[in-house]
Amino acid sequence: MTVVDSRPGGPRTSRQRKREALERLARDKDVWVATADATGEPCLVPLVFWWDGETVWLSTRDTNPTGRNLCASGRVRLSFGHSRDVVLVHGTARVLTREEVSAEVGDAFAAKDGWDPREDHPSYVFFQVTPQVLQAWGTASEMAGRTLMRDGKWLV
C-alpha cells in the first residue's frame, strides 16, 4: 500500500519541520510520556508539560510508575501531536523536588495550564527532559530526513 502525502505542496522541508516542531512545543498543552521499568514493562501516560525553549518540563508523583521509572533510569520518549503530524523526542530526565525547582520554572509551568504541582500533593516532583533526538514527520513521504536533532544538537 502506498501512502500519498496529503499536504499541499508535498513533504515539508527540514527547516519547516523544525519551525513547526518548535511551535508545537510552545503551543501544545499535553504530551504522551513513555517510560519503562527495569524489567522492560512499558508505561504510557499523558502529562501536562512546559517547554522552556531548550528542555521539556514535566511533573508527576515520584510514587507512580512514570515517576519511579524516570527517577530510576532518566530515560523517556515524548510524543507530541498525532500520527499524521508527530514530533517524537528521545530524552534524558533529571528529577527536581518542589524545593529544588526555581520559582521561574514553577511559575511558568503553573501559568501554562493553570495547575501548580508545588501546591498539590507532596509526592509531586518535576522532571527536566533534555532532548537527545528529535524527529518530526507527517506521512511516509517525510520519513526520510525526519531526524532533526541527534545527540542534543540540531541538524538543521
Rank of each mutant, 00 (worst) to 15 (best):
G81D: 09
N69K: 08
H90L: 11
T97K: 02
T60Q: 03
R98K: 15
V87W: 08
R84I: 08
S83E: 12
R77D: 14
S59C: 02
L70S: 01
L70E: 00
G91A: 00
V95S: 09
R75T: 07
H90S: 13
S83Y: 13
G81E: 03
T63S: 13
T97Q: 07
F80R: 06
S73H: 14
G81N: 06
S79N: 08
G91H: 04
T63M: 07
R98L: 08
S73E: 11
R98V: 07
R77W: 15
F80Y: 11
V89A: 08
L78A: 01
A72E: 11
F80H: 07
G74C: 08
D62I: 15
A93S: 06
R94K: 07
R77S: 15
C71L: 12
S73Y: 04
V87R: 03
V87A: 05
G91V: 01
T66R: 04
G74E: 09
S79Q: 10
R75P: 00
L70D: 00
V95G: 00
R68T: 12
V76I: 09
L78R: 01
E100T: 06
P65C: 01
D85E: 14
G81C: 09
V89S: 10
T66H: 11
T66M: 13
G67F: 14
S79L: 15
R75F: 04
A72G: 00
V89P: 05
R68A: 12
V76E: 10
C71S: 08
F80E: 05
L96N: 02
L88D: 13
D62C: 12
E100V: 05
N64Q: 06
N69D: 14
A72N: 05
L88F: 12
F80M: 11
N64F: 00
T63A: 03
R77A: 15
T97V: 02
A72H: 04
T66P: 07
S83P: 03
V86G: 11
C71I: 02
L78S: 02
D62W: 07
L70R: 07
F80Q: 03
G67W: 05
S73T: 15
R68Y: 06
T92Y: 09
R84C: 01
S79I: 01
N69P: 06
T60S: 10
V86E: 15
V86P: 03
F80T: 07
G81R: 10
E100S: 01
S73V: 08
S83V: 14
T63R: 10
H90F: 15
G81F: 13
V86Q: 13
G67V: 12
G67Y: 11
V89K: 11
T66W: 03
T63E: 07
T60M: 01
S79G: 03
R77E: 15
D85W: 13
V76Q: 06
